[in-house]
């Protein structure tokens, strides 16, 4: 039997919104330690890895590991039926071919349940190597979203260049060019407004705007985003979920011809 109850059900709605652009279907791996999901998009350019720790749920029971393969478009349809202040419970029997979502209003006066068919997905699990990154940038997630949105008006790609002084985002296209520079700025009133750069050596990498914009669907999940970069390895864009886990995206850089 698997059962996970989240009083802050809106969080689950936001997690789904943050991945459904990139993935049509994925397997939620449920274990005693929590729920995880790892999947590449169909073109194998980006990878989503997320983890929701069991202790972040208000009730969590997982007698044995279960893999819940879901069509995420269908899951999103069901999640839209939950209000933002609903308590959400996910339930599945061992070896079941369906999953049940229960939505309760805070006053318990309305309880809805939706049963969804599971899919048998041929999921291959990937080992993600530990990497010492040349540059790690922490910045406000809304700022990153804004920059990705603005520069995608200019071109298809964004060059992210990081030095000790700051980080620069650049785009070029038929209409001209755009550059956004952010200086390191740790002395701010609110921690979430800080721009912090940990640099071993400067890097400059090119990434597709389309994917970066998809990643920023996770913005409502965290006030800060962390970008980890090294030459010729995938960019990691991480949103930490408070007391719960993370949503991470990996993106292969564009290569100079």
């Amino acid at each position: 039997m698997f059962e996970a109850r989240l009083v802050q059900g809106a969080l689950l709605k936001k997690v789904l919104e943050s991945i459904k652009d990139l993935l049509n279907e994925a397997t939620w791996e449920c274990a005693a330690t929590g729920i995880s999901l790892q999947a590449m998009d169909s073109s194998h350019v980006s990878l989503v890895a997320l983890n929701l720790r069991s202790d972040g749920f208000d009730k969590y029971r997982c007698d044995r590991n279960v893999s819940l393969g879901m069509n995420l478009t269908n899951m999103a349809k069901i999640m839209k039926c939950a209000s933002n202040d609903d308590v959400i419970t996910i339930k599945a029997q061992d070896d079941a071919d369906t999953v049940t979502f229960v939505f309760e209003t805070p006053n318990q006066e309305k309880i809805s349940d939706y049963e969804m068919k599971l899919m048998n997905l041929d999921t291959e699990h990937l080992g993600i190597p530990d990497t010492d990154y040349s540059c790690i940038v922490k910045m406000p997630s809304v700022e990153f979203q804004r920059i990705c949105r603005d520069l995608s008006q200019i071109g298809d790609s964004v060059v992210i260049s990081c030095t000790k002084e700051g980080v620069k985002f650049s785009a070029a296209g038929d209409l001209g060019t755009g550059n956004v520079k952010l200086a390191q700025n740790a002395n701010v009133d609110k921690e979430e407004e800080a721009v912090v750069i940990e640099m071993q050596e400067p890097v400059s990498l090119t990434f597709a705007c389309r994917y970066l914009n998809s990643f920023t669907k996770a913005t409502p999940l965290a006030p800060q985003v962390q970008l980890s970069m090294s030459s010729d390895v995938p960019l990691v864009v991480e949103y930490k979920l408070e007391d719960m886990g993370y949503v991470r995206y990996y993106l292969a850089p564009k290569i100079e011809d």
Partner: peptide
């Protein structure tokens, strides 16, 4: 110009 790289090869299939 640039071409989009892929993730295959960066991660090992377990």
């Amino acid at each position: 110009s640039t071409t989009q790289g892929r993730l295959d090869g960066f991660f090992k299939v377990l």
